[in-house]
Simulated assay, not measured.
Amino acid sequence: MKDISQMKEREDLGSYTVWEEVLIDRKEESTSTNMPLGTPIHNIEMILRKGGQLANPAGAVVKVIAKEGKSATLKLCSREVYLLSKNCLATIKQVGNVGVNQNSLGRAKSKYWLDKRPVVRGVVMNIVDHPYGGGEKRAPIGRKKPAIPWGYPALGRRSRKRNKYSDDLILRRRSK
């Protein structure tokens, strides 16, 4: 491996990307053109220069499983397989704070200090406040089908757009 200062001294620096000379174990941005297969990446662009959209949350990681022509195949942690352009930017390594959901705050007040307000169940509300509300004592949901507070159906209704632009990029959907 050569040092970056040595690389700057070379006259033909513009003929290749920096990733040919730098180790990939540092957390940097790169295109998937020069990444070896199996590289863990996150914060991936789906469309060129649009910004990172895939694998943003804590602990998320995506693996480069194949490169062919102008596209690269990526395997997400949800076991979905995406086909993206090699020129889309990504950040190497896994997102930190992996065990964010493993720690226990201990009591309700600790959560309140983090500005996480208590959530009231819809069943205990009045009928004017929530579709599940109303009824005497411990009545179940008052409607035939569950709904969100704004009246639209909930629990099982598909919310993804039918003709979303990323449908063409998904090679294999996640199993339910």
Rank of each mutant, 00 (worst) to 15 (best):
M1I: 10
K2Y: 14
D3G: 08
I4G: 03
S5V: 06
Q6M: 07
Q6W: 09
M7Q: 12
K8T: 08
E9I: 06
D12K: 09
L13S: 10
S15K: 14
I24A: 09
K27Q: 14
E28W: 07
S32T: 14
T33F: 13
N34I: 02
L37F: 01
N43P: 00
N43Y: 11
N43V: 04
I47N: 06
L48N: 06
L48T: 06
R49P: 00
K50P: 00
G51W: 13
G52F: 09
L54C: 04
A55K: 04
G59H: 06
G59D: 05
V61M: 12
V64D: 01
V64C: 04
I65D: 05
I65K: 07
A66E: 14
G69D: 06
G69H: 03
A72Q: 04
T73Y: 06
L74R: 04
L76Q: 10
R79C: 07
E80V: 05
S85E: 14
K86M: 11
K86P: 00
N87C: 08
C88K: 05
L89N: 11
T91I: 13
K93W: 03
Q94V: 06
V98G: 00
V98C: 00
V100R: 09
N101G: 04
N103P: 00
G106I: 07
S110A: 15
K111T: 05
K111V: 07
Y112K: 14
Y112H: 12
L114E: 15
L114P: 00
D115G: 13
D115M: 12
K116V: 07
P118V: 06
R121V: 02
V124H: 05
M125G: 01
N126S: 08
N126A: 05
N126C: 00
V128L: 05
V128R: 08
Y132L: 13
G134V: 04
E136N: 06
K137I: 02
R138Y: 03
I141M: 05
G142R: 11
K144W: 07
A147C: 12
Y152C: 02
P153G: 10
A154Q: 10
R158A: 07
S159A: 03
S159V: 08
R160S: 08
R162Y: 01
N163G: 07
Y165C: 03
D167V: 02
L169A: 01
I170N: 08
R172V: 13
R174T: 09
R174N: 10
S175P: 02
K176Y: 12
